[in-house]
Simulated scan of single mutants.
Amino acid sequence: MQTEDIAGLTEPSGVACSSARRRVIAVVASLTASLTIFRLELLKRLAGAGHEVIAFAPDHDARVERALAEIGVRFIRIPMGRTGLNPLEDIRTFWSLRQHFKRLKPDMILPYTMKPIIYAGIAARTLGIKERCFLVTGLGHVFSEANGRSFKALAIRHLCIRLYRLACKRARVVFVYNDADADDIRRYRILPDDLTPTMVPGSGVDLEHFAFARAARGGPVFLMIARLLRDKGVVEYVEAAKIVRRTFPDARFQLLGHFDSNPTAISRELINKWVSEGILEYLGTTNDVRPYLAACNVFVLPSYYREGIPRSILEALAVGRPVITTDLPGCRDTVQPGVNGMTVKPFDVVALADAMASFARDPDLADKMGRCSRELAENKFDVHMINRILFAGMGLTD
């Protein structure tokens, strides 16, 4: 049976809805915390425009649920495994979304990240929901070269491509964060020929919440904020730190982030080992990264994960920190080399160490580049500017 011949998929014809009318909008996430970390201003704007907004995500998070309730957004938990391929679990996700959509009758869906896009998209199609808008924040780990080219990896990628096609067929709009994802969407023919991805520069950053903060003199203090995954470049960060400390023993290397169930997760034991050796300061997790960004001189993310545009970098730009990251899609979109930071090849520990050492040699460099980072955030990554792009693509007005 062809994937796109699944029974129940209907595409009723009809005229486009007026952009001014009140809609029921379902926003679907794979991580509850992301609804406030990445989407709070968008959800505020949707609710403020008079739409009924319902957010779906798998985790119970009292803080997030309170924040959503305060802005008039309803929250519903759904079963979903963020990582891994478990057919029974994924069927539960699809069926739960379909049942909720059938009962609540949303006019529009806006899922983001891989599993929400696939399963919310397919569920909505089976119910004839026409206004399907997708936010591709990154195609997912299975499309990363780090995932390998084994038979299993290629088979999983092929399956995901077919599911993406099924979900996105006749979508209203598909937003992407970077050219590489747009190119892959075209290369794998995820969208029909008559639909072109709409570029949006990441999730954006609230420039008032993440205000500019001049870095303290001395140091240097390097900070990496990320999920504790090998793909994020944690090991390379630590190995480069060892090199830098040989010449600059006062340099400090901090790591902030939570442990993860991803297949490439860093173990707690390894983190503890690095801390006990005096290489790394592990800062744990937090709901507010601003004090840590304000206390560092340079932000580092040597990721080779298949990023969209890393939110952590956007926050560092807004606070006014120079950025060292990899010359890869998503990451490199946040850096003008030599102006507000530096890019290095992925896996290149020596180049990463050299980049960090340049800030240790010249204490004024971080201040100079940090001011350029803030300017870049203001000119390109303001969340309100980005939300205007999203509203226009979804055919909505305030």
Rank of each mutant, 00 (worst) to 15 (best):
R170A: 09
R170N: 15
R172C: 02
R172Q: 15
V173D: 09
V174T: 05
V174A: 03
V176T: 14
V176H: 15
Y177G: 05
N178W: 05
A180F: 07
A180I: 03
A180Y: 10
A180E: 14
D183S: 11
D184A: 13
I185H: 12
I190H: 05
I190S: 06
P192D: 10
D194N: 05
L195M: 00
T196M: 03
P197C: 09
T198Y: 12
M199G: 01
M199K: 10
V200R: 13
S203V: 14
S203R: 09
G204P: 09
V205H: 08
V205F: 08
V205M: 02
V205L: 00
L207P: 00
H209Y: 14
A211R: 15
F212G: 04
F212V: 00
A213K: 12
A213N: 11
R214D: 14
A215P: 14
A215Y: 11
A216N: 14
R217V: 00
G218E: 01
G219K: 12
G219P: 09
P220N: 02
P220F: 06
F222P: 01
F222T: 00
L223T: 03
I225S: 01
R227Q: 11
L229E: 06
L229Y: 07
R230D: 11
D231M: 08
D231H: 13
D231K: 06
G233K: 09
G233D: 11
V234F: 09
V234A: 05
V234L: 01
V234N: 02
V235R: 13
V235H: 13
E236N: 12
E236L: 08
E236K: 10
Y237H: 11
V238E: 04
V238S: 10
A240Y: 11
A240G: 11
K242C: 04
K242N: 04
K242S: 05
K242Q: 10
I243R: 15
R246Y: 12
R246E: 15
F248R: 04
P249F: 04
P249W: 02
D250A: 14
A251S: 14
R252W: 03
Q254N: 15
L255V: 03
L255M: 03
G257S: 05
H258F: 11
F259N: 03
F259E: 01
F259C: 04
D260I: 04
D260W: 02
P263I: 08
P263E: 04
T264K: 14
A265Y: 11
A265N: 06
S267K: 07
E269G: 12
K273E: 13
W274E: 13
V275W: 04
V275N: 02
V275R: 13
E277F: 05
G278T: 01
I279Q: 12
E281V: 03
L283Q: 07
D288T: 02
V289A: 15
